[in-house]
Design a protein around this nucleic acid. Structure first.
Length: 572
RNA sequence: UGGGGUAUGGGGUAAUUGGCAGCCCUACGGAUUCUGGUUCCGUCAGUCCAGGUUCGAGUCCUGGUACCCCAGCCA
């Protein structure tokens, strides 16, 4: 079976192709890939897929993978993005064999362009953007050849030299490859190789007034670096003939790299358009690129997603050519799986309700007794030991854990009902105190001293074990709950504009109460708030926790179903 | 409109290249449990459509359909 180790992709089509190359002696058995981001923004979950494919493939065949910053368009790029990209790759757990820049090849590219001109395969076009665009033709309609298409080699060389010398203003001329204006493939209709931009480049400064386009730079950069398999996303498959055309017409010092395309990763309830993510930031809809609701790698990191969960998720999806929007629930299940085994447990009450134990004893001085109970840090890993939690007769419990008139299948605390306070005692609710609106503000209860530690000597069972925090020992916390950023699985499906489907209630801030041991959580660390979910301590603000993801919640599911049933009954 | 790409349960992904359609997630049952968590066991459900070749088709052939990408001096 292909999935013997539980990881998909052992036999994916890219590995098959590379396997054939190796068997056929192509590239002398060498495998080299690259991850080539443009430093014009922050990396997002979609890039994580590309990164795992690029690095993972190299790793699988004992090859190398470089990062190459595809910095051919200086007006969109800056060094801050370069740094963030490198940081995010490192966070994901990958180490590039080298960090390279397409801008490092500008001189070689320039010389190769002169070579193509000399071969009569490239020409300088004096027309403006709009004219060239109009002449390109349309689907099913051939383009029109530029009047400058048949300039002499000498004139082209002279003009190109002067373009490079900075003699012409932006947009006044371009260098084009002379291929076929009637090609069915629009990419082949005399593509632009160089455009004039008198702009400062973050790597090369003002050295160059002309910049290569993606198509002209990419394959050649691959060849220069010795890339064997240039893995990219599906939208570039119509570019492959051009990628090959350039490589075939150049005197390459190395074997020709091979481009292979795969499907990009998209997730439900979010977007990966850099432009629109930038708008969320600019319009203040989120706090920044690292807002825990953002699908950026920085956002996921702040949210508490473990890098391993992201990597495992990508590996699990496999590498295919089928476009798919994957359910974000699948990613979340990887996050839970990882966090369940790695995160410590803590008790935090997010919507506090007072629970007063009326028969709680006082000591010889008349003050209430304080008891300390050991609680397991991580039931999945007993080596992590226990911590002590203070217990008194004055407690916080979760509002949701008490019902004055319990609905069907409600197992938690209710008048006359006995439950366990985790690791401490069994308690029975005896009554409530309400405010002027009839809201329960305090629950009264009695405890059974014989159940110290949480077990009844007579063997009687309770249906629920609840978390609690001692009021005099409680630590104040800010907790941010997150919902999906968008209200629909496929944002923009109905209107064409994803931002129309923004969820206005994607964040809820709560003032919570935590046990004392909550203060030993490190910045950025993720812990499980027992019975609630996984929460990440904010890296910068002590006392602030972001909900990474909730626990699976059968009770909530039951309630949803009941509500749905009630609605259906109402309609009928 | 021309070209390119892709279709397997509700979602995703396999099938030794023509040989019993498997796995994961979800949903739904049940067991265990001091987290309505975890773990364990089980259940439902699929080859885009119509023809054809073949003892045998997810796989090959013919014809359709649906979705994605391409007319930037973005990548």
């Amino acid at each position: 079976m292909a999935n013997a180790e539980g990881t998909s992709g052992a036999g994916d089509f890219i590995s098959d192709a590379i396997g054939h190359d190796i068997d056929g002696g192509v590239y002398k058995g060498r495998v080299q890939t690259r991850f080539p981001p443009e430093p014009n923004g922050y990396l997002h979950i979609g890039h994580a897929k590309a990164i795992t494919v690029d690095f993972g493939t190299a790793e699988k065949f004992g090859g190398v993978c470089n990062v190459r910053l595809d910095d051919t368009n200086p007006v969109a790029e800056n060094p801050e993005f370069v740094q963030s990209i490198l940081d995010d790759i490192a966070w994901l757990g990958y180490e590039p064999a080298a960090v390279l820049h397409a801008s490092g090849y500008f001189e070689q590219l320039y010389q190769w362009a002169r070579y193509l001109i000399e071969q009569g395969l490239a020409y300088v076009d004096d027309q403006d953007n709009e004219t060239i665009s109009a002449q390109r033709g349309g689907y099913g309609r051939p383009g029109v050849e530029s009047p400058f298409r048949d300039r002499s080699v000498e004139e082209n060389l002279d003009l190109f030299t002067r373009m490079r010398a900075g003699e012409f203003p932006d947009g006044s001329r371009v260098l084009r490859a002379k291929i076929d204006m009637a090609s069915d493939n629009m990419v082949l209709r005399d593509p632009v190789m160089y455009r004039i931009r008198h702009a400062e480049h973050h790597q090369t400064g003002m050295q160059w007034p002309i910049y290569p386009t993606y198509d002209w730079a990419h394959g050649q950069s691959d060849a220069i670096e010795g890339v064997t398999h240039s893995l990219c996303t599906l939208e570039f498959d119509t570019h492959r003939p051009l990628y090959d055309w350039y490589l075939n017409h150049l005197p390459l010092p190395t074997e020709k790299p091979r481009q292979i395309e795969f499907a990009r990763l998209e997730l439900t309830y979010t977007i990966t358009s850099k432009r629109r993510l930038a708008r969320l930031v600019r319009d203040g809809i989120v706090d920044g690129w690292d807002d825990p609701r953002m699908p950026t790698l920085r956002g996921l990191r702040r949210r508490g997603y473990p890098a391993k969960a992201v990597r495992d998720f990508c590996a699990y999806l496999g590498t295919t050519r089928t476009n798919a929007r994957h359910n974000i629930e699948e990613l979340e299940s990887f996050v839970r799986r990882e966090l369940n085994t790695t995160s410590r447990r803590r008790m935090v009450v997010t919507r506090p309700l007072h629970l007063v134990i009326d028969n709680w004893p006082t000591d010889e001085n008349g003050s209430p007794v304080v008891e300390y109970f050991p609680l397991t840090n991580n039931p999945e890993n007993p080596d992590e030991g226990t911590r002590l939690a203070a217990f008194t007769g004055d407690l916080f419990i979760e509002q949701e854990d008490f019902a004055e008139t319990p609905p069907p299948k409600f197992f938690r605390l209710a008048p006359g009902r006995e439950v366990r306070l985790r690791g401490a005692y069994l308690v029975t609710a005896t009554g409530v105190v309400k405010d002027e609106n009839g809201q329960v503000v305090e629950v009264h209860a009695t405890y059974d001293p014989a159940t110290r530690g949480g077990d009844a000597p007579d063997g009687r069972k309770v249906k629920s074990t609840m978390h609690w925090v001692s009021v005099p020992h409680a630590v104040d916390l800010d907790v941010a709950l997150y919902d999906r950023l968008f209200t629909t699985p496929n944002p923009g499906e109905s209107t064409g504009e994803p931002l129309d489907d923004l969820n206005p209630d994607s964040r809820e801030l709560l003032s919570a109460k935590g046990e004392a041991a909550i203060t030993d959580v490190e910045p950025g660390q993720v812990v499980q708030f027992e019975r609630l979910g996984y929460f990440a301590a904010d890296p910068d603000r002590p006392g602030l926790f972001h909900r990474t993801v909730g626990l699976r919640d059968e009770w909530a599911a039951l309630q949803r179903k009941a509500a749905k049933g009630a609605r259906a009954a109402k309609r009928a």
